[in-house]
Amino acid sequence: MRIAVLVKYVPDAAGDRHFTPIFTTERDAVQGLLCELDEYAIEQALQLVETAGEGQVTVLTMGPDNAAPALSRALSMGADDAVHIVDDCLAGSDALATSLVLAAALARIDADLILTGMASTDAGLSVIPAMVAERLSLPLLSFASALRVEGKYVTIRRDDDEATETITTTLPAVVSVTDRTGEARYPSFKGILAAKKKHIERLSLAGLGIDPAQVGLLGAMTVMSSVSRTPSRAAGVKVLDEGSGGIQAAAYLAANGFI
């Protein structure tokens, strides 16, 4: 079984994230890391291979040179090899362009299963899995809180607002997983050492046969016209509970029309 996992290198959400003058995400000012939500996808890929007793896990990312630590982290967790799509023309790519590039790279791998996280923690759009599935003409089972592979079938459990569903489809397929699938493992010391010997293939747009005009800021199908800081919320009244905190809170709610 060949499993491909799509991962992203993102600025730490705990940092002061902001934009560059051309409205792209500022990636140098804030410490970057492997998107936490992608670790769940890597964990599930590793578990599937461990359960099957055979298989290969390949992680893919699209990003600048400094995105490599995301791949190293995935390799030290236990992934077998990695693909890094890096090209200066990719800067400023929107979701459609990103999905075009990822789909082209995935087409070369011929994976049985493509796993992704539920969202990136920076853009947080959750559309890449659907776009990649569409470009590869594959079914997508999204927001899995559990998954299993049996023969030619993949089955997920999805817990949404209305119901818990069991959904199944045939491989190859794309599956996005949520943080409910289970904690991701920490890389072991042995894993970190082993990762240094693992292969990271670097791919350029030319290598994928993609015209640079289709990607980056030039190829973007959406255009940002302005970015402004949200006015920060001012802290309001704070009272110390000396026995009547609840009554004071009720008075506040009543004064503001909530009671």
């Binding site: 994230r17 902001h18 934009f19 409205f23 973007a220 199908m221 959406t222 255009v223 940002m224 016209s225 302005s226 970015v227 402004s228 800081r229 949200t230």
Partner: peptide, 9 residues
């Protein structure tokens, strides 16, 4: 923390 305005082109 940011408000973004955008259009589909």
């Amino acid at each position: 923390s940011f408000i973004v305005r955008a259009n589909v082109a």
